[in-house]
């Protein structure tokens, strides 16, 4: 397999997974797609290093998360989840969104952004991609037990943040 083939057959098909991952951090469809584009081009630039890779998916996901964090840091203002633009866009694309309290979404979003890498990737793969614990373990290169611990910690943290936020609202 040459490099272009690896790219088109193994890396490019991950685009939707990466998009959902980016979206769960930035919560803005267009921005998420821009990030995925940057990630894919960056990965292509690093094609000399692919030979050392054992799993492309984990590598691409980690890179997407890091780029999201960079972007969020760079332009904090434009990522306010409660501004009108993002509200309109997400409401159009996601029927569930309207049902969920906007403030709760913002709360989960910021919790997701602050999760350690493994916790973030594990919960993302489980909740959005619907992967089994075993698949997640293989993808992230950790044990089954560690997968469960990471998911447990991520869910618990987000739940606590939500409860805290709900109590503040009262």
């Amino acid at each position: 397999m040459n490099l272009t083939q690896i790219f088109t057959e193994r890396i490019l098909p991950l685009k939707d997974t990466l998009l959902r991952l980016a979206f769960s951090m930035v919560r803005q469809a267009e921005e998420a797609e821009d990030i995925v584009q940057d990630v894919l081009l960056k990965i292509w630039d690093k094609r000399d290093e692919w030979i050392k890779l054992h799993n492309y998916e984990g590598y691409c996901m980690a890179m997407t998360r890091n780029l999201c964090i960079d972007k969020i840091r760079k332009n904090k203002q434009s990522f306010q989840p409660l501004d009108n633009i993002s509200e309109l866009q997400t409401a159009d694309k996601n029927p569930y969104e309207s049902a969920v309290n906007k403030e709760a979404i913002g709360c989960i979003q910021s919790s997701m952004q602050q999760l350690p890498e493994m916790q973030f990737l594990a919960i993302q793969l489980r909740e959005t991609e619907g992967k089994s614990y075993q698949e997640i373990a293989t993808l992230l290169g950790i044990s089954l037990e560690q997968v469960k611990v990471n998911i447990h910690r991520a869910r618990t943290t987000i739940k606590q943040q939500l409860i805290k936020q709900l109590n503040h609202g009262l």
């Binding site: 685009k15 939707d16 998009l19 959902r20 979206f23 769960s24 469809a29 797609e33 995925v36 997400t90 694309k93 996601n94 029927p95 569930y96 969104e97 049902a99 969920v100 709760a104 979404i105 989960i108 909740e127 959005t128 619907g130």
Partner: peptide
């Protein structure tokens, strides 16, 4: 529900 909203999302 937070995650349900993005399950179908594609580029």
């Amino acid at each position: 529900e937070y995650f349900s909203s993005e399950k179908e999302m594609i580029t």
